[in-house]
Write a protein that binds this DNA or RNA. Structure first.
Length: 493
RNA sequence: GGCCCAUUCGUCUAGUGGUUAGGACAGCGGCUUUUCAAGCCGUUAACGGGAGUUCGAUUCUCCCAUGGGCUACCA
């Protein structure tokens, strides 16, 4: 039975890197008919915050990664907050203690820091000296009387070579001599990451630990701990890192790093999923577009590569634009509406009115192919539908066309538009009639169509005048045309 | 400093002991066109370096270089 987990610590917003790790865990579980578990690693009481946990869960939900067990979903192996599992950890801490694999260390942070500095200075590997490893009870008592507090260190077996299989990297080998007796708990009731994670992965029967490469150095520590407790070692797969453009680990200094920030920015979860899965993995062929459901069928760990990949938003934008064009129009419209509202082009009330809704849908459908993010929808591209237009009079002139010729062209457009019934005021009908008139008048398209388009949109770049006119409706279209006509006549030849 | 990891176009990547080293994004050019976008077509661009193995290495081995991760009473 495959069981994978994502084990974020709620000490910050849901990070893109965590999301990618979650995705690989999720896909691997789904592909193998296994379970995907969310465990909140909140042993650090100082830094863990409930709002971060909410952010993480919301991010996972937004991406569509439904978890089988987790903090809000009862499962056989709960609770799923480490903070609720302290009694469990205590039991194993005591077991280690009984086996004499644990000892109290009375060194202060300052002392340890000093020791480390000395070692680095003398080019030694920085390791704990083991000073407290053989304290007698009397010594301990004396130190405590001094007012010193202690931490719990795990006794490492020296001079051993460990080989751990990694699904992505092959065999990883470690020499226990480079390890020191690391601190696994502040006291019997306050476990630390490297200890708690081993207990939980065992108790929750996690079969595959898929996580970032930054954890490779934790592998020997955790393997030794598991061995000491007679746990079987799970399978490992260490994912390559996601990088900044300068090839350092993805950080908020250089990138937006909070997942949900991408949502507010106008990215679609489909695009993020598709983009992220291709960072360090590929299915082998030339195909690049995949839905989550498809990935659940084809994902495999053996095709994950070993080197880090840069988070390049150009490609993300391309995926996003692709999914914007593909998306169901009513779904897309509902995603776009809040942006119209916050840009001030719509009130909440208007947005929920039936006829407005139909209009917004048409606008969205027209503009979708020229935006990369849904947040761009009201910006510069479509305000002319919802507000009056403003433009420089000279913009009405196409290439070298004179004001007179432009005026004539626009009058033809006006005449055609006027002749159309309200019911015939559709994009295709308008196009057909206008082009017919252009041919009959032996004119160039641009002489008529350019000024028409500018009069309706006020922009040098916009959708076609046929589409715009149809959405604007006959009345408003003609208003704008006659307004433009007036402005042309004020132009000097 | 120590330990570990990585290295194919600018970016994401495919790939093989003999290939015109393939695709995608970005870039550039063109077609289409009233403009923008989309679409289509084309194009620039890569095997980090040095030894070795071999008839032949981008591919296998070693060394070097470069880059990165870790080196907490964080996770």
């Amino acid at each position: 039975m495959v069981r994978t987990r994502i084990a974020p610590s709620p000490t910050g917003f849901f990070h893109i890197g965590t999301a990618r790790t979650a995705l690989f865990n999720y896909l691997f579980a789904k592909k193998n008919n296994g379970s995907f578990i969310v465990r909140i690693e909140d042993t650090d009481k100082e830094r863990s915050k409930p709002e971060f946990e909410r952010d993480i869960l919301e991010g996972l939900t937004w991406l569509g990664m439904q978890w089988d067990e987790g903090p809000d979903k009862k499962g056989e192996y709960g609770p799923y907050h480490q903070s609720e599992r302290f009694a469990l950890y205590r039991r194993y801490l005591e077991e280690l203690n009984n086996k004499s694999l644990l000892y109290k260390c009375y060194c202060t942070k300052e002392e340890l820091e000093e020791e480390r500095e000395m070692q680095v200075l003398s080019r030694q590997p920085p390791r704990y000296s083991g000073k407290c490893s053989a304290r007698t009870a009397a010594e301990q008592h004396a130190l405590e009387k001094e007012g010193r507090t202690s931490t719990l260190r795990f006794r490492i077996e020296r001079n051993r070579k460990l080989t751990i299989k990694d699904h992505i990297r092959g065999d990883l080998t470690f020499d226990t001599d480079i390890l020191d007796d690391f601190i696994i708990a502040k006291d019997f009731d306050t476990p630390l990451y490297n200890f708690a994670v081993v207990i939980d992965d065992h108790l929750m029967k996690i079969s595959h630990i898929i996580r970032g490469e930054e954890h490779i150095s934790n592998v020997p520590k955790q393997a030794l701990l598991a061995e000491a407790l007679d746990f079987s070692t799970p399978e490992f797969a260490h994912l390559p890192l996601i990088l900044n453009p300068d090839r350092t680990k993805l950080s908020k200094r250089q990138n937006k790093v909070s997942l949900l920030e991408y949502r507010t920015d106008g990215y679609l979860s489909e695009a993020l999923i598709n983009f992220m899965v291709l960072l360090g993995w590929n299915p082998g062929g030339d195909r690049e577009i995949f839905t989550l459901a498809e990935l659940e069928e084809i994902f495999d760990l053996t095709r994950v590569n070993k080197s880090g990949s840069i988070f390049d938003t150009h490609k993300l934008d391309w995926f996003n634009a692709h999914y914007i064009r593909e998306m169901d129009i009513s779904k897309l419209t509902s995603l776009c509406t809040p942006y119209f509202i916050s840009a001030g082009y719509l009130t909440e009330k208007e947005a929920s009115a039936k006829h407005e809704d139909a209009k917004i849908e048409k606008i969205v459908d027209l503009e979708r192919e020229r935006i990369h993010k849904i947040s761009e929808i009201p910006l510069h591209t479509s305000y002319f539908f919802l507000t009056d237009v403003e433009y420089d009079d000279h913009l009405l002139l196409w290439k070298n066309t004179s004001p007179q010729a432009t005026q004539e062209g626009l009058r033809i457009a006006e005449k055609v538009l006027l002749s159309l019934d309200e019911s015939d005021f559709t994009a295709s009908k308008i196009e057909q009639k206008l082009k017919q008139a252009i041919v009959e008048g032996k004119l160039k398209n641009g002489v008529v169509l350019w000024p028409l388009r500018v009069s309706l949109t006020g922009l040098a770049a916009s959708p076609s005048p046929f589409d715009v006119a149809a959405i604007l409706g006959k009345k408003k279209t003609l208003e704008r045309v006659s307004h433009a006509l007036k402005r042309i006549s004020s132009l000097r030849p």
